[in-house]
């Protein structure tokens, strides 16, 4: 029986304890691509926080690798995820599955800087 190749990537070592930027997930994607393993574990041990943007990019990367041709297809799993990061990933995944459609209302009061300066703050 052919053994399935696996690899674990420690995100705190590869990136940083706080993962904020989408472009760092792009670099991670390159590391995953280079790996010859099919099963890739992204290890969140010592990761304190993942931004919404980075969580979104991570979920997209995971989906993209599953859709690739068999030769470059990979099954990515997230391990050692703390509760806060799990909440972030679940929230973004839910929004991804069912994006909000309602227009956000935002009507700030308009004022010029001199009037603002005159306000008692």
């Amino acid at each position: 029986m052919k053994k399935i190749k696996r690899v674990t990537i420690k995100l705190a070592d590869l990136i940083a304890p706080i993962i904020g930027s989408r472009d760092l997930v792009d670099s991670l994607e390159k590391s995953v691509s280079k790996s010859k393993a099919y099963l890739v574990k992204l290890d969140f041990k010592n990761i304190k926080f993942v931004s919404r943007s980075a969580a979104h990019a991570l979920l997209i990367m995971k989906e993209d690798f599953l859709r690739k041709a068999p030769s470059s297809k990979k099954d990515i799993s997230f391990v050692n995820v703390n509760e806060d990061i799990e909440t972030m990933l679940r929230t973004v995944a839910a929004n991804r599955a069912l994006p909000k459609k309602k227009e956000i209302e935002f009507e700030p009061k308009k004022i010029d800087i001199n009037s603002l300066a005159a306000c008692k703050i």
Binding site: I18, G20, S21, F49, S51, S53, A54
Partner: peptide, 10 residues
Amino acid sequence: VYYPITELVT
């Protein structure tokens, strides 16, 4: 603390 910093920097 982390949310605004990470989002605004990215």
